[in-house]
Each structure stands twice: as structure tokens, then as C-alpha cells.
Nucleic acid binder design. Structure first.
Length: 719
RNA sequence: GGGCGGUUAGCUCAGCUGGAAGAGCGUUCGGUUUACACCCGAAAGGUCGGCGGUUCGAGCCCGUCACCGCCCACCA
């Protein structure tokens, strides 16, 4: 109880840290709608959903070999298991065969020899065909074991014949089931060798006394100690063939564990998934994956499932499994006789409350009850996240409006856990999909592109760049990474974000600083600017709708920086200072649109600017710009001609290494008649911006683009 | 062993249904221009991993190989 209280305190503190961080990042969260995976509502949803599966027969209690972490002292699910490459050694061990020379098997786990229940060879492996159907005898323990044929045995591996033990790996479980013999479990739940009653079933031996003698030296040893001991014994007995051969092979670990997993027989709750692989793949296809390639990973995982989902955990902090068991008159627990709570009493804690119809003093007594001591796997509750806040079982209207939800955002490393289990639970609940879209983000890697981990000490806290560069910069950096691709914290990109923020503020200061009334755009440059902005809005909107937020950001940024600031603002400045209504109206409306395009990326600076524009509401509740709302002017030609000439004049000044405001004594524009007309319609802006004192035009239909010939005057000398 | 990505300028990455190689940073040269020096202008820099194929034309399509990364797989 004290431990759970401590957990609750840590959770509360962590929640506060997350909330602080997310608010600082400006995430638009409705803080009145939060939930926690172990709060009252979540316990209710988790327990009720589970009970419905029990009723439907989709969840059941089984006593079966299950992957077990000997340090955590708990069962684990397939999804929490990972392979790690470990060094080991192949030991070759000779078994006796009645009327033969014996047979040599290879194993990396000699300590499981007392648990050996059979030998297996491939049916077409002629080396061993004479043995199939006969019996072999284990060394040391003198246990007779059948030799069987199965295609699962690989003639290429080891000696081509292997021993089946209870239990060395998942394949052993399969063969054990086929054989239909009792398990001879040699490793206990703490990872130590059990004392064995050789001679008593199932510990049969041709020489029980000899077997016991050997086994007594193993009992109580850890797995690694037992391995050394039995290798020594085998050596002494002359049953070890040749020297051990070093191998590097994958070993299964609990993802948080430090010692290899063992298979032990225990009683666990399972949710059936093995019979639903096809349906679950089908469900996955009803969902849009962004990027789409991650659907393959999901299907890959489902296809590779090899056991049902074990949802019970032998832990303390979690959602309790809402089940009691009847205790028989003889004091033993009848695990087939479940006592389930009523829906209206949920959530319950069977460890603290008696089941309906019982009193607490009957706990553990003959004729009484026993509460299930376990809690659910965290994914057993997290898999219900689409149901927890949407009114499931509680508010039908709300559920109808919110479920299936639109989007699940998550990382790719938890496709096999969070995404998979969520799709599974929704399917089991009512055949639905939990959401229509799933957006998979990549990882934030360290500077060397390695995954961050506490043990490596290469963790970058988000608060550090937030302190140094500000929230908008950090958001800019993260928005620059495309869905599904990894990113590294890059100071250059944080700086870029900061520059953008400054640029937005400065451009707004200029635009909002002009005085005078706004008017309809009538000047060709202004009308062209609107046409370009219209195209941008369409482009950016399309990118968002294609789930390409990074593309939306870069398109917006490129337009803002180049088209708007570097070109348009420079061209229009003189007219704006002269209070031309067309210029002022265009500047102000363009700023309004560009701020809204930027708002999802840099919410703080855009809101700050917006608030100075005499707006009554936040920019973040304003409508998204629509291309159709912008005046449609087809021709951007005047702008293109002006920018082209401006660029050429700038280059002339740059080549001459003079100031940009150096006057142009004489400008000759050579261009097609059409371009000259466009130039004429908007020459006032260009001539003012480039400081052109005199100009003339030359018509030349061969000129594909306008050409500028520039004669520079003396730079003005500041007195 | 199976699956999925990636390999484009010194660095980080864009390149849509195939049609004359792009951005930012960095580098070089220049510029106090009254929104911004957290700025402005200009420039240099790439046999688009290798090889083969399809095509009038390939960074993009097909085949193959090589590296890099991730996911998965019965530990004999």
C-alpha cells in the first residue's frame, strides 16, 4: 500500500512536469478533458472492457508456459520482448541409445538436460532415421526419452538433432504439446534449479539414485552456476563430446530486463489474438497510415504473432484484474469458478474488497474466495485510450460524435504495442477501428544519430533548447522533421527558427507601422502579390491535407522570406510610405493571411503580432485562410518582370561593390513588347526601389526574359 | 533468414504523375538600405552510392550489388 502511494505521488509530479512542458510548447489541449491511465475512469473502462471479453470467451485464464522475467518476477507479453545478441557456447552431449553407439546433440543450454523430454530430428535426415520411434537415454539422469521426427528440426544446425526441454524456447512448447507428456520444470520462478524427486513421475529415470546424486549438486543453483556445474559433471561422465564451440546468437529478454527470459508454467490471463490475424490485418487496412510504409510494419507484426496476448502482470501498481475465485471446501482454489463484479460496482480492487455475496473474513478460507492478485499489463488499458475520454458506456451521444477518433499520433517503436493493441481492442469490442488515421513520428536522436538512453547519458532535455531558443524555435525545428523520419536536435535549425520569429516580428512592425487607409488592390504589383499569395494558400492547404506539415512550413517560409519580404516589401515601400491605399490594403491583408499560415508552427509570435492588430479573438481560433477568399488576378507578370529587373540591378551593384542605394544613372530595359507593357504598368515601384534616375526601353521579341543594362552613378557620400 | 526505409552541394535535408539539379546553414566577396546586421545583395560548390536496363529523355521507372538504419524471426 505504501508503495502504491509512492507511485501515485510520482505520477502526480510527472503529470505536472508534462503539463508544464506542453503548455510551454503551446500545445492546444483542452485541459478539462484529461485522463490518466490508472485513474477512476480508466480503471472502469479497462475492467469493464475486460469483463465483456471474459463473457464472450475472448479472454481466458490459462495455466501454460509463459515468458517469465526471473528478476521482475512477472509474466511478460510478446510485444515486450526483444532479442539481444549474446555470446554463448554450443555443447555437444552424447545420449545413449538402446542397442547403438549413442547420439550426439548440440545445445547452448546444457543445464536444461534434466528437463529433456525428447529428441527431435528432421524426417528426411538419413543420419538419424534409424533412431526415429526409438528411445534415447539422457546422460547423468538416465531418463528415457523418445526420438521423434519433425520438420522443425534443421539438419544444418548443430548436429541436426536436438533435445526438447521444458522449456528452453517457444519451439519446445510446441513439441511438448505434441508429445502430450507432463512438463518437467527444472527452473523455478526466481531462476534457480528446483530439487527434483527423481523416480517419481514425471521425473522418470532408469536409475533414480544416480539421477538424484547428480541433481542434488544442481538444486538451488542459478542458471549460470548450474550450467558450469552440469558441464563439469558431463565432462566427468565422458558425455561431453569435443570442446564447446563459441556462438553468438539472439537471446530473448524482457525489454526492461537484464537476464534472459525463461518459460515457466504459470496461471495467466490471455486475450485471444492468434485466431484473428487476418481480421486484424484487415482492420489495419481500413486505417490510413502516415507515412503509409508503417502499415507494412504493423502487418509484419500481426503476421508474426506466435502467442496470444498475455495481459496479466505480477506487479502492484496498475489496474487490478477484476476477478475473484471460489475457494473449495478443501481449501484449494477453484480457478474455473470465477466470481465477477457487477458493472455498477466497477472499478473494484479484488485485493481489498470481497466479491458480491461474500464478506472480507471469508478471504482465503475454505468455502470462501480469493482475489486475483495481479494487475493488467499497461497496454491492456492504454489500448482503450480511444474509449476512455469519448463517453464509452457512459454517454452514447458523445461516443457517437467522437468515436472512432480522427487521429492517433505515436512513435514507430510502439506500433506493435500501442497501435496493435488498440486496433485489437476496438475490433474485439464491436468490430470497429479506433481511429481513421495514425500519424507515426520518428525519433529524436542524439547528435551522433543514436537513440537517446538514460544509461548512455546522451539524453537532450527539451527544456534546454526551450530555454536557449524559445518555444517557437523548438516547434519550428520539430515541425521541420517529416512524419516518420528521425531528427536530431540541431542548433542551426533552432537558430533558423529564432530568425524566422524575429523576421515575422520585424516585417509586421513595418507593415503595421504605415499610416493611411486601406483600399482595394488596383496596382499591378499588388494584384500580382495577391495572386501569388492565393497560390501559396492553396499549396500549403494541399500539403496539410496530404499530411505534409514539414512541406507546408517550408513553402510558407520560402514565400514569406523571399516573395514577401525581400521582393514585395522592398518594391512597395515607397508607395506605402506615400499612403497608397492599394499598397496599404494589400500589405495588411497579406500579413493577416501569412500570420494564419504560420500560426500552427510558431503560435507565440503570431499571436503576439495578431494581438496588436485590434483583433478581438486569438489567432488560434481564427479560420484557416481560403484561397477563394483572396482576390483572383490571373497575371503575376508585372511582379515577375519587376523582380527580374530588380535582381539584375542588384547584381550590377554587387559586382561593382557599391551600396544597394547607389543611384542608377541610366537603365535600359530590353524586352518583348508584352514584357515592356508589364514593366510600364508597374515601373514606379521598381524605379523607386532601385533608385533609377533615368530609363529607356528597347523592344526585342527575341528577348525571352527582360534584360537590364545598368549605368551606375556615384554612391551618395554621407556628410 | 524475412520485411521496411535511406544513400542528392562541406553539414542538415527538399525534389510532385520521368522533361535543362534546389533550400537553409557553412564558405567567399560586397553592403550602416529610416522593419530587421538574428539583416540585405552576390558568388563558389554536386559524375544525384556502384553497375546494367527501359525511354527521344532517368535523381525519379526496372534489375542487381554495396554500405547505413529500423522492425521482425523457434535461444538446438
Amino acid at each position: 500500500r505504501n508503495f502504491i502511494e509512492l507511485c501515485d505521488r510520482v505520477v502526480t509530479e510527472d503529470e505536472k512536469s508534462f503539463k508544464d512542458l506542453w503548455q510551454r510548447l503551446g500545445l492546444s489541449i483542452d485541459w478539462s478533458q484529461t485522463y490518466a491511465t490508472i485513474d477512476e475512469r480508466s480503471r472502469f473502462v479497462s475492467q469493464l472492457s475486460f469483463l465483456k471479453l471474459v463473457e464472450k470467451g475472448e479472454a481466458e485464464l490459462r495455466e501454460a508456459p509463459t515468458m517469465w522475467d526471473i528478476d521482475f518476477q512477472s509474466a511478460v507479453a510478446q510485444a515486450e520482448v526483444e532479442d539481444r545478441e549474446k555470446d554463448g557456447a554450443f555443447y555437444k552431449i552424447r545420449f545413449d541409445v538402446q542397442g547403438g553407439d549413442g547420439v550426439v546433440i548440440a545445445t547452448t543450454r546444457p543445464e536444461l538436460l534434466p528437463a529433456c523430454i525428447a529428441l527431435v530430428a528432421h524426417p528426411e535426415d538419413t543420419r538419424y532415421s534409424g533412431l526415429i520411434g526409438g528411445m534415447a537415454v539422457t546422460p547423468l539422469f538416465r531418463a528415457p526419452v523418445p526420438v521423434i521426427a519433425d520438420e522443425g528440426a534443421d539438419p544444418e544446425k548443430g548436429t541436426g538433432i536436438l533435445m526438447v526441454c521444458t522449456f528452453g524456447d517457444a519451439a519446445d512448447i510446441e513439441w511438448w504439446r505434441q508429445l502430450g507428456v507432463p512438463a518437467r520444470e527444472v527452473i523455478d520462478r526466481a531462476g534457480r534449479i528446483v530439487p527434483a524427486p527423481w523416480g517419481e513421475a514425471p521425473w522418470n529415470s532408469n536409475d533414480p539414485d544416480e539421477a538424484k546424486k547428480h541433481h542434488d549438486k544442481l538444486a538451488g543453483l542459478s542458471i549460470s552456476q548450474a550450467r558450469k556445474e552440469i558441464v563439469a559433471q558431463l565432462g566427468d561422465a565422458g558425455a561431453l563430446v569435443g570442446d564447446p564451440q563459441n556462438v553468438r546468437r539472439p537471446v530473448k529478454f524482457f525489454e526492461k530486463g537484464e537476464r534472459p527470459l525463461e518459460f515457466v508454467v504459470s496461471r495467466q490471463w490471455f486475450i485471444k489474438v492468434m485466431d484473428k490475424k487476418e481480421a486484424l490485418i484487415e482492420q489495419g487496412r481500413k486505417i490510413q497510415w502516415h507515412p503509409d510504409m508503417f502499415r507494412a510494419r504493423y502487418e509484419n507484426w500481426v503476421e508474426g504473432l506466435n502467442q496470444d496476448w498475455c495481459v496479466s502482470r505480477q506487479r502492484y501498481f496498475g489496474v487490478p484484474i477484476p476477478v475473484w475465485y471460489r475457494v473449495k471446501p478443501d481449501g484449494s482454489v477453484d480457478y474455473d469458478d470465477l466470481i465477477l463484479p457487477a458493472k455498477e460496482n466497477l472499478p473494484v480492487d479484488p485485493a481489498a474488497e470481497p466479491p458480491p455475496g461474500f464478506t472480507e473474513d471469508q478471504r482465503g478460507r475454505a468455502g470462501g474466495f480469493m482475489g486475483d492478485p495481479d494487475v493488467f499489463d499497461t497496454w491492456a488499458t492504454s489500448s482503450l485510450t480511444p474509449l476512455i475520454p469519448t463517453g464509452w458506456q457512459d454517454d452514447a451521444d458523445k461516443l457517437a460524435g467522437l468515436y472512432p477518433t480522427d487521429l492517433r499520433p505515436q512513435g514507430h517503436e510502439i506500433i506493435r504495442t500501442w497501435a496493435f493493441t488498440t486496433i485489437t481492442r476496438s475490433y474485439l469490442e464491436d468490430g470497429s477501428v479506433p481511429w481513421w488515421h495514425v500519424a507515426i513520428s520518428g525519433w529524436v536522436l542524439d547528435h551522433d544519430r543514436k537513440k537517446m538512453s538514460k544509461s548512455k547519458g546522451n539524453v537532450v532535455l527539451p527544456t534546454d533548447p526551450l530555454d536557449e531558443f524559445g518555444s517557437d524555435s523548438v516547434r519550428y525545428w520539430s515541425a521541420s522533421a517529416r512524419l516518420g523520419s528521425d531528427a536530431t536536435p540541431d542548433p542551426n535549425v533552432f537558430k533558423e527558427g529564432k530568425r524566422l520569429v524575429t523576421k515575422i516580428r520585424n516585417a509586421a512592425r513595418l507593415v503595421l507601422g504605415f499610416e493611411g487607409p486601406s483600399g482595394e488592390p488596383t496596382h499591378p504589383i499588388d494584384m500580382a502579390l495577391n495572386a501569388r499569395l492565393r497560390a501559396l494558400v492553396q499549396d500549403v492547404t494541399d500539403r496539410w491535407e496530404a499530411w505534409d506539415h514539414a512541406g507546408a512550413l517550408s513553402a510558407t517560409e520560402a514565400w514569406f522570406w523571399t516573395d514577401f519580404c525581400d521582393n514585395y516589401l522592398e518594391l512597395v515601400k515607397t508607395r506605402a510610405y506615400n499612403q497608397d491605399p492599394s499598397a496599404l490594403g494589400t500589405l495588411r491583408s497579406a500579413l493577416d493571411v501569412i500570420l494564419r499560415l504560420f500560426a500552427p508552427f510558431v503560435p507565440f509570435v503570431t499571436e503576439e503580432v495578431w494581438s496588436t492588430m485590434e483583433r478581438s479573438t486569438s489567432i488560434h481560433v481564427s479560420s484557416w485562410p481560403k484561397a477563394d477568399d483572396l482576390p483572383e488576378t490571373a497575371d503575376t507578370g508585372a511582379f515577375d518582370v519587376a523582380v527580374s529587373l530588380l535582381t539584375q540591378i542588384r547584381k550590377a551593384k554587387s559586382d561593382a561593390k557599391v551600396s544597394i542605394k547607389t543611384p542608377v544613372d541610366r537603365l535600359i530595359v530590353k524586352a518583348s513588347a508584352r514584357d515592356l507593357t508589364l514593366f510600364g504598368s508597374a515601373s514606379d515601384d521598381l524605379l523607386a526601389t532601385a533608385n533609377v534616375l533615368a530609363h529607356e526601353t528597347v523592344a526585342d521579341e527575341k528577348a525571352e526574359a527582360p534584360e537590364a543594362y545598368v549605368e551606375l552613378g556615384e554612391p551618395e557620400v554621407k556628410v
